[in-house]
Design a protein around this nucleic acid. Structure first.
Lengths: 126, 126, 126, 126
DNA sequence: GTGGTCTAGACCACT
DNA sequence: GTGGTCTAGACCACA
């Protein structure tokens, strides 16, 4: 379900957080679905339970999942009043990537067509 | 020239790296321009020279600048054979951001218009 | 009668405890009224009976209800010699909240008007 | 600076979080002040550094402090656009306390005078 | 069984 | 020196 890359500069818990965000955003995990238990995921990823725990509590504090203690963690409902700070941070991350693409010599046209492709592809899934 | 934000989650050295990337990508710093010396920038930003040094090494290893020992650091020429791995990584980072924006409820239209704005803005400068 | 919110950070048993405290404090449940049986409430709320049992024990230990074995749980009489330690703890909890509200930029006036509203609203019900 | 009560039902890290919130809200710690280092506080409170770390990262995610990695943690500036969810949660906590005070037999008048006292006292400090 | 907290002790990146 | 991450292993409260 989630692929870890130990060589990555991203920390393990961050990879897990981003992995779940992706699964949720893609619709593979839907509202109300149960996430694997902390211990279970820890053993499948051969990672310490504390690390999973950290990932889950981060996801919870960012409102991607909610926790029912004693039962497990579940995908939260899609917020319709997104945190503006989160949006700003996502946009600025994209902006920086675009800047670097342009510098690396990719043409405006190429970038735009690729981006449109992403948006329409993902848009369908949602 | 470069604005540091201590409250940012980004480390200082990373902010400096990204700051220079932006200056170069924007065309404010052009091919062959000399960067400030390590000591000079360190005192301007009231930052440890080691931190500046680290930023410069990183920029050099990513081929944004080159070092002439004894003279200083200079902006490298814009590559026209971009590293395909770098491109892929940039695109996938953007893709993930887009996916999250869509999940957060931003419409395809909104995203696309914002992206076009970024691209054309940056495109002019370069 | 009692609304559970699984997404709440509060544990289920705590929500039940607080729910009954509210019903009693509001006067909806009056002195001597019988609470639903453990089994009954468990099935209404689709919750494990152990959880209900725990809530009831907690309410009893805090003197909100009393148990007649074989008959059920009943609302206790309103104490007129409140435990001073309990009062102190409640006041200090309020004090801390007020302090945080002030820090968050809410004006004294706003806070006071809101508090008066709470008190008079609750006061009527009791 | 911070008093731990091991008997409290509050977890240690939560007591530390609330302790710092209080110090900041009271004005004892002002904007830009440095918090004790993780290791230092850990040894003064004879608590594991991880526990302090958790407290600090919680305070950071709630925007009470900001972190400069390699330098330390500092009190953030007072937000003027408070998180409405935070306000709601503070108000509802107060409301519940008031409800219980009323049930315990404290009169409306007593409560209100006590609350006014709190507000005006704290208001002066800020 | 679930999540949550805590300790002990290690290692890394950044300043 | 600073904070941040990770492991190993324990214990608790809740369902």
């Amino acid at each position: 379900m989630i692929q870890l890359d130990l060589k990555s500069r991203k920390s393990i818990y961050e990879q897990i957080v981003d992995g779940f965000k992706e699964l949720i955003a893609c619709g593979i995990l839907k509202e109300g679905d149960k996430l694997p238990s902390v211990r279970e995921l820890a053993s499948t990823l051969t990672v310490n339970p504390n690390t999973i725990q950290k990932s889950y509590s981060r996801l919870e504090s960012e409102n991607w999942i909610y926790t029912v203690s004693g039962l497990g963690c579940f995908v939260a409902e899609r917020s319709h009043k997104p945190d503006p700070a989160a949006l700003r941070s996502l946009y600025s991350e994209i902006e920086e990537c675009i800047m670097q693409l342009l510098f690396l010599g990719v043409t405006e046209k190429e970038i735009l067509s690729k981006l449109q492709e992403f948006v329409s592809e993902r848009g369908k899934q949602a």
